[in-house]
C-alpha cells in the first residue's frame, strides 16, 4: 500500500519519456516532430497538447541546426510528476557560439520578464518583417503559441533550453 507501481495504469500517461542524441538536420527535424506528435498524441490521448509539444520540439531543433557549432544535439521529452497535475518538459542540449547563446538567453529573459508575452510577440513580428536573415521568432513562438515557459542553462559552450508545460490529463488546451 502506498507504493507506486512502475506498471502503466489505466488513465495514466506515465511513464512517457524519451531522449535521443543525434546529428540534427532539417530533413530529420520533421521526422522527429511527427514522432512527438504521434507518440504523445497516443500516450496522452490529446492531439492538441501533442501538437504543442511537436511545435516546441521543431523550433528548438531548428535552433540547434542554425546555431550549433557541431553536428550533435540531445533532445529529451519527459512527462514528470503525478496526477492530477503533471509537468511536460522538452529539453534540447547542444553546443553553440557564445554570441548565439547570449542572444537566446536575452530572449528568454525578456519573455520571462514581460507581463504580456502576446504583445511582446506582436512587437517581435513587426521587427521580423524587416529582418534579412532569420525571424527571431522561434523562442517567442514557443512561449506564446504553446503557452510553455522557457528556461536556459549555459555551461561553457553547452547550451540547454527547456520548454515546460503544466498538464492535467483530460483537460487539453
Amino acid at each position: 500500500m502506498g507504493e507506486e507501481s512502475d506498471e502503466p495504469r489505466a488513465g495514466s500517461p506515465l511513464p512517457a519519456a524519451f531522449s535521443m542524441r543525434f546529428s540534427p538536420s532539417n530533413q530529420l527535424i520533421s521526422i522527429v516532430r511527427r514522432f512527438v506528435l504521434a507518440f504523445y498524441g497516443r500516450v496522452l490521448g490529446d492531439n492538441e497538447t501533442s501538437g504543442l509539444l511537436a511545435l516546441a520540439t521543431h523550433e528548438l531543433l531548428e535552433n540547434a541546426v542554425k546555431y550549433g557549432i557541431n553536428d550533435e544535439a540531445s533532445l529529451a521529452v519527459e512527462v514528470r510528476g503525478a496526477a492530477p497535475t503533471l509537468e511536460i518538459v522538452v529539453t534540447l542540449r547542444n553546443q553553440a557560439r557564445a554570441e548565439h547563446a547570449a542572444a537566446a538567453m536575452a530572449m528568454i529573459e525578456a519573455l520571462r520578464g514581460c507581463e504580456d508575452p502576446f504583445s511582446f510577440y506582436q512587437a517581435l513580428m513587426i521587427e521580423a518583417a524587416g529582418r534579412q536573415q532569420g525571424s527571431g521568432l522561434g523562442l517567442a513562438r514557443i512561449r506564446v503559441e504553446t503557452g510553455m515557459t522557457l528556461e536556459m542553462k549555459i555551461e561553457g559552450a553547452t547550451v540547454e533550453i527547456s520548454a515546460h508545460m503544466r498538464y492535467e490529463p483530460g483537460r487539453s488546451g
Binding site: A54, E62, A129, L137, G138, R141
Partner: peptide
C-alpha cells in the same frame, strides 16, 4: 506544419 521563419514570410 509551418516553422517560425516561414511564419515570418506571412508576416512580411
Amino acid at each position: 506544419f509551418m516553422n517560425s521563419s516561414c511564419f515570418k514570410a506571412f508576416v512580411t
